[in-house]
Amino acid sequence: MAKRLVPILAMILVIMALYVFMLAVAELPPYGNVDNPAHNYVYEHYVNNALEETGVLNIVTAIILDYRSYDTLIEATVLFTSIMAVLITLKKGEQH
């Protein structure tokens, strides 16, 4: 009985959340507009100065490998972490 109830409860929860999401989406800045707050001085600095400052044509590369390189180091660490996690989950290690 309780098992049958779980999907129904989850459905009610998700529908309630979706209603609030709709109210929030209606408030967001219009999609694809140049004047959105997301396209502000940070965006302009990247687009205008990335080539001079980093010498890379692809601005996305300039961002992930230069402006936000610390993030990328940690991103590589996430991969390393998951490799260690899989090792400790599946491997028995050394047999004595």
Binding site: F21, L23, A24, L28, P37, A38, N40, V42, Y43
Partner: peptide, 29 residues
């Protein structure tokens, strides 16, 4: 990010201080 265009916490704070009343539902979500 959508509402402020910044990821640095201090700059998010500065941007939100001016515009937050326009985005109450979005901010609440």
């Amino acid at each position: 990010y959508n509402l402020t265009g910044n990821l640095n916490m201090l700059f998010v704070n500065h941007e939100l201080a001016q515009t937050w009343s326009n985005y109450q539902y979005a901010l609440w979500v």
